[in-house]
Design a protein around this nucleic acid. Structure first.
Length: 562
RNA sequence: CGGGGCGUAGCGCAGCCUGGCAGCGCACCUGCCUUGGGAGCAGGGGGUCGGCGGUUCAAAUCCGCCCGCCCCGACCA
């Protein structure tokens, strides 16, 4: 492709709207443009990178025995009512009516549609296992679209669904997909980890997320280098017991703490470390309000709380509720004398003696609080976010916390959808049984963004070879006819050798061409300039390393093929 | 949805506080010149100042309402 005929609007400056590198670079490199919040157009260069990832995914899905289909984006409400998700999915599901006033939605995911398809066609265990997938747009009306294409509302996703006769079969399908995912992200040139994950709104029993390791990732991961344990901190298990020194119980004392509310303030005011404080957090879970006690220096894990309470959603109680229950403004809640709510406590509180809590009274805290004596022993559960240096729940060594970008997520669904939708088959004994399902997603655009997040420098993108929009860029430095002629010959030869090559034949000065070349980050730059005039040779620059070599034009095709 | 910020030429921004010519850099067009890291000179085109309403002799600027976008939190590929 000749650059003079290509559509590549590069930007010299960072766009004001972009914050993270991948977003800035994708805009600057002319890969994407925004149409509305979370809604993007792909320009030719961006689309080529997207297609590269898409093709890797397609190849590996096919290799794993999955079959490609294409499912509708627009879906009737009736299907979603069958599984109850028309009510449960919330505002992320974009709903609308057609001209006949029938309810529809844009598909944020396709469990309902695929289950409907399969229940109509699959009758027998002989048809199983079956894995279907598609690579198609999804629409999720995200609360806060972010980071460009990384969290878009409309995005391209690969979603696969497995159907098996039993749990054993599901295990095999799941493993097969897990391995395909490892191959996919490896081929995309990414450093990633598969981690245990919460199943969230999709549901099911077991789940792994594939996380690209990057500082800008929205997720935190707990990793144990000793035994390989890896989990999203959302569900990484906190250690069972903290061992506290045995202290004598001291007498309960109420102290005045004027204007002092937060853990830091109380800690500084009383001269007591945060780990000697116990926070009392009030949460609303549906109709119920619960109080959760947790050590002052630790963070409550809302996912664990949600799963413990068996509800879809928990949220911090609003100030009015806090005041009604504690009879004090926010900042002074405590377990002593608290009534009318269920009191839960993180394991970090077990065994802790003589701690500090709010006194349920304006500007007052209790010191030397002890459960069992000053208030009833609470229910202890693992409710905290694990932190750096926590022991690994498997082997007890220290956990490290890193950040990651979720590019893939796989779930064992079981019969969560097949049962309500009555997707059944007849087993060998002629028994009707529900299909056992799994589902497997990959964010295609997100994978491109994550790859850029992980592979760039000050000058621009450094595309991993397998997903680069082109393999090489020929830079013709100067308007001389002989340079142009030689460049064109090279361009034809490389193209003819099956190498995807872009030729910067624009009438621009060398500096402009070099800057754009580094910005768009193709793996190789072929420089036809001064050296060619002198010796008839061209220069090959590797984008990733900056390494340059000089060689004859004839030697180039075979050099680039290795 | 809560909190913070921003909307002025294609992009990046100044002007707004203190009302009175709509500006700067880059990009774009023409000519000359230049060709190994975003050249130079000369000339030129491009604006509902996010929208609507109000105040005023006069509004980008002051006031009100609305819209859009970005960032931080809860959701997710």
């Amino acid at each position: 492709m000749r650059l003079s005929r290509f559509f590549l609007p590069t930007l010299r400056e960072d766009p004001a709207e972009a914050e993270v590198v991948s977003h800035k670079l994708m805009l600057r490199a002319g890969m994407i443009r925004k149409l509305a919040s979370g809604i993007y157009s792909y320009l030719p260069l961006g689309l080529r990178a997207l297609r590269k990832v898409e093709n890797i995914v397609r190849e590996e899905m096919n290799r794993a025995g999955a079959l490609e289909v294409l499912l509708p984006l627009v879906q009737p409400a009736e299907l979603w009512q069958e599984t109850g998700r028309w009510k449960d999915y919330g505002k992320e599901l974009l709903r609308f009516k057609d001209r006949k006033d029938h309810d529809f939605c844009l598909g944020p995911t396709h469990e309902e549609v695929i289950t409907d398809l399969v229940r109509r066609e699959v009758r027998s265990y002989r048809d199983l296992p079956l894995i279907l997938y598609q690579i198609a747009p999804k629409f999720r009306d995200e609360i806060r679209p972010r980071f460009g294409i990384m969290r878009a509302r409309e995005f391209l996703m690969k979603d696969a669904y497995s159907f098996d006769a039993d749990e054993e079969g599901l295990k095999v399908s799941y493993q097969r997909m897990y391995e395909a995912y490892e191959r996919i992200f490896t081929r995309c040139g990414l450093r990633f980890r598969a981690v245990l994950a919460d199943t969230g709104a999709i549901g099911g029993s077991e789940s792994h997320e594939f996380m690209v390791l990057a500082e800008t990732g929205e997720d935190r991961l707990a990793l144990c280098e000793a035994c390989g344990y890896a989990a999203n901190v959302e569900l990484a298990e906190g250690q069972a017991y903290f061992v506290y020194p045995q202290e004598e119980e001291k007498p309960l004392e109420k102290v005045s703490t004027p204007g002092v509310r937060s853990v830091e303030e109380v800690s500084a005011f009383l001269g007591v470390p945060p780990s000697k404080l116990v926070k009392t957090l009030l949460y609303r879970a549906g109709e119920e309000v619960v109080a959760v006690l947790i050590r002052g220096d630790l963070e409550l894990n809302e996912v664990k709380l949600r799963n413990l309470l068996g509800v879809a959603e928990v949220e911090m109680a609003d100030p009015e509720t806090v005041e009604r229950i504690t009879r004090a403004p926010v900042g002074f809640a405590g377990p002593v004398g608290l009534s009318g709510v269920r009191v839960l406590a993180d394991l970090s509180v077990r065994g802790l003696r003589n701690f500090v809590t709010g006194a349920n009274e304006v500007e007052a805290h209790y010191v030397n609080v002890n459960y069992g004596r000053d208030f009833p022993e609470p229910e202890f559960h693992d409710l905290r976010v694990v932190t750096e240096g926590d022991p690994c729940p498997r082997c007890g060594r220290l956990l490290a916390i890193t950040r990651g970008i979720e590019v893939g997520h796989i779930f064992k669904l079981g019969t969560k959808y097949s049962r309500p939708m009555r997707a059944t088959f007849l087993d060998r004994e002629g028994q009707e049984r529900p299909l056992v399902m799994g589902c497997y997603g990959i964010g295609i655009g997100r994978t491109v963004a994550a790859a850029i997040e992980q592979n760039h420098d000050e000058a621009g993108i450094v595309f991993p070879r397998e997903i680069a929009p082109f393999e090489a860029l020929i830079l013709t430095l100067g308007p001389d006819p002989d340079l142009l002629e030689a460049s064109e010959r090279l361009y034809r030869e490389l193209s003819g050798a099956g190498i995807e090559v872009l030729w910067d034949d624009r009438d621009e000065r060398p500096g402009v061409k070099f800057k754009d070349a580094d910005l768009i980050g193709l793996p190789y730059q072929v420089i036809v300039g001064r050296r060619f005039r002198e010796t008839g040779e061209v220069e090959l620059k590797e984008r990733a390393t900056g390494r340059r070599e000089t060689l004859s034009p004839e030697a180039l095709p075979s050099r680039l093929k290795t």
